[in-house]
């Protein structure tokens, strides 16, 4: 499964901010860490702000901070702000979809989508932060 760039950047941003709940981070710091353009990040942060996951703090020492609930917000919640998760039937019918093989293929692709959806829906930001910590502690191979 491959997420769109905006979804990935949104996940990186909320995870970075949620990992430091008492700090405000500037957009340029986040952009530098994940090697993305400030313009693109600004759009993503605006959308995350509308979804009430991050908020801008103005003034000296200002920046962005996480304002969601890391125990309740799932990866699906974040990704869905930027793209539909069920991909195989988005965009109308493709040639062959209505044939017998197209029907069978839709069943198999639906199975993959269901598993991907359950995975993204069952992993909270807090769980992701735990996973990140655990992986960071493992000896580098």
């Amino acid at each position: 499964m491959k997420l769109q760039r905006s979804s990935r950047l949104a996940l990186y941003s909320v995870l970075e901010l949620a990992s430091r709940p008492d700090e405000q981070l500037s957009a340029s710091d986040i952009a530098a860490k994940f090697d993305v353009s400030l313009n693109h990040l600004a759009k993503v942060l605006r959308d995350l702000g509308r979804a009430r996951l991050v908020e801008a703090v103005r003034g000296a020492g200002g920046g962005y901070r996480f304002c969601g609930n890391a125990r309740r917000t799932t990866l699906k919640d974040v990704v869905e702000i930027f793209e539909p998760i069920t991909l195989h039937d988005v965009g109308g019918f493709e040639p062959g979809d209505k044939t017998e093989f197209g029907t069978s293929l839709a069943v198999v692709l639906g199975e993959i989508d269901d598993i991907a959806l359950a995975t993204l829906d069952s992993i909270t930001l807090e769980t992701m932060l735990k996973l990140t910590n655990r992986l960071n502690k493992q000896p580098k191979g």
């Binding site: 799932t74 359950a118 829906d121 069952s122 992993i123 909270t124 807090e126 769980t127 735990k130």
Partner: peptide, 10 residues
């Protein structure tokens, strides 16, 4: 069963 799955994931 997302609630229980989220628990085991956590």
């Amino acid at each position: 069963n997302i609630t229980v799955m989220a628990f085991f994931r956590s």
